[in-house]
């Protein structure tokens, strides 16, 4: 067991804290998510640790349930993005030729439109539901994973053990899942943290714009939107979710940095 650097330890601690909070939200939240339990924008007190929101709901409970929604959407969207992106990227690298060309040029095309703008265009005709958000975010982000996965797989594809597998007569499916995937895993895992942060920021931005998670369902971006009018009266309720997003993002970044450093030093050792 190697010693953990302090930054990684802090990162892992806060990341797991947020995920546990998301999983056990109903047990932790002191009040139900949508129940009005006090006045409008009450200050912090022993009864309401973070005060109440714009219509008198307990802000801490909203934050906990909101974290659950945000983290759930970001996690599933990351999984969708990685599954489609890496399978398509590996396939393009293994098959090569015009299939690779066609897929790569299409990805270039999608990436030449800013992600947020493209998401807004698509969401203008789609029903805005959570599964739809996950699909749109996952698909748009899979282009980035595709590029990474393809680049890594192209390198692995010319190695001797893959040649050997091809000469043994293994099929493409075997080569993708049994030869390339295990060897491409570590750069992909390091990238996963960054993609997850991007998803958290993305879904929060969409909800903040009113085009993501719909009320009364709570999520961090939506809580900012609901409470933003308080800012001009000096009420900071809208800043709590932003603090949560920022600390989660920084923690995941610290973990991802550590994973990345570890894997690159591993690679250096292997030569």
């Amino acid at each position: 067991m190697m010693r953990l650097p302090l930054a990684a330890m802090i990162g892992i601690f806060f990341t797991s804290l947020y995920f546990l909070m998301a999983i056990f939200a109903p047990l932790l939240a002191p009040y139900p998510m949508t129940e009005i339990v006090g006045g409008v924008w009450e200050p912090m007190s022993a009864k309401h640790w973070l005060g109440t929101d714009n219509i008198g709901r307990d802000l801490l409970s909203r934050m906990i349930y909101g974290g659950r929604t945000t983290i759930f959407i970001a996690t599933v969207a990351t999984i969708v993005s990685f599954t489609t992106g890496s399978i398509l990227g590996f396939t393009a690298a293994v098959i090569g030729g015009w299939v690779d060309q066609a897929m790569s040029r299409f990805v270039d095309l999608v990436m030449s439109i800013p992600t947020l703008i493209f998401a807004l265009v698509v969401l203008s005709v789609m029903p805005v539901t959570i599964p739809m958000l996950i699909m749109v975010m996952g698909f748009l982000d899979s282009t980035r994973v595709y590029r990474l996965a393809r680049a890594v797989a192209v390198d692995i594809n010319v190695m001797d053990f893959v040649e050997a597998a091809k000469l043994r007569g293994e099929g493409r499916i075997w080569i993708i899942f049994r030869e390339i995937l295990p060897n491409a895993l570590s750069p992909l895992v390091a990238e996963m943290g960054l993609r997850f942060i991007f998803m958290v920021l993305f879904v929060s931005t969409l909800s903040f714009l009113g085009l993501g998670v719909q009320p009364p369902q709570a999520d961090w971006g939506g809580i900012v939107k609901e409470n933003k009018d308080g800012i001009v009266y000096g009420i900071g309720a809208a800043l709590w979710p932003a603090v949560a997003i920022a600390t989660l993002a920084i923690s995941v970044n610290l973990v991802a940095d550590w994973v990345l450093n570890r894997t690159t030093s591993l690679k250096g050792g292997r030569g």
Binding site: S204, I231, A242, A246, I250
Partner: peptide
């Protein structure tokens, strides 16, 4: 820190 902050947070 600033990469991890959403734009609306900085604004508010």
């Amino acid at each position: 820190a600033s990469i991890s902050l959403p734009e609306f947070f900085i604004g508010y």
